[in-house]
Amino acid sequence: MKDFAVFWGCTIQARFPFLEKSSRIVFDDFSLPYKEIDGFTCCPEKSLIDNVDHEMFVVTAARNVALADENKVDIVSPCTGCVSNLATVKGELESNPKEKDTVNSLLGEVGREFEGSAKLSHLVPFFHDSVGSHKIKQTIKKNFNGMKISAHYGCHMIRPSHALRNDDPIDPVKYDNLIRTLGAESVETDTKLMCCGQGLDRVDQHDNALHMARMKLKELIKAGADALTVCCPSCFLQFDNNQFLMMREGEKLGLPVIYFTELLGLALGHTPEELGLDLHRVSAEPFLKKWASLTADNQEEINSGLNATGTL
């Protein structure tokens, strides 16, 4: 496996450093070759930056990719937005040599050059493709048998597909596969591919943002999901923080939102506190309690030798 730099992005480091923590924990447990490199900036975020100044959007992303090129590493990010934005610009420059030249003559002024040799991956498809379910199953210490978990891919994990090319953009499977690898049932819903809606908060439309979050959360609760798993800080903000705000206003919700790296970390035997699950705004307790009771049940079954049913 080629060494890779982790592109943490602004939101994880500024608002959710515990997500960096759980990511590092799982990288270490799988002995993955990640490197820290100096010099990254904002990816940059598309809706805020691209709408205002496309050229700065391109130059900034190209510079970030150039740093990975120079260090001869790939990029893996636990943020869907970062990967999608970097890949969008990489794709744009690769299909437009003239623009690439213009950008490179600018980057030359600060001693950089965009080649585009670094492969850009989001952490979920990366675990699916480069670590693989076999290795994951071998490494985990506990599974989620009996738990119902629903994956929210997050639009930018898989779209735009012409730039990312990592899963089917309208019928993705990799995140679901990983949930099953961890032993849980992957809950499918009608709103599976619906955008989380956090973007609406970024343009001062909070009520609309809440409305979109509510639709998905209600459907999942009705479907009996024990948790929603996400792997994007923006989706996390939407479903954890905004769900909390709705609950504070008296809405009956309360669906735990678990980051992919936290889910994996739990299966690897780390405690919720180590992984920072106690820092969520919506309590993960109901999920953890049910899981603990199932694990106890399983253990009892093993102890009393009742494993003739073939379920173990």
Binding site: T41, C42, I49, D204
Partner: peptide, 16 residues
């Protein structure tokens, strides 16, 4: 919010 986001980016190269 978009204006604030852009200003912070232009000043610091990050959104936080």
């Amino acid at each position: 919010q978009v204006k604030r986001g852009w200003d912070m980016f232009a000043k610091s190269s990050r959104l936080g």
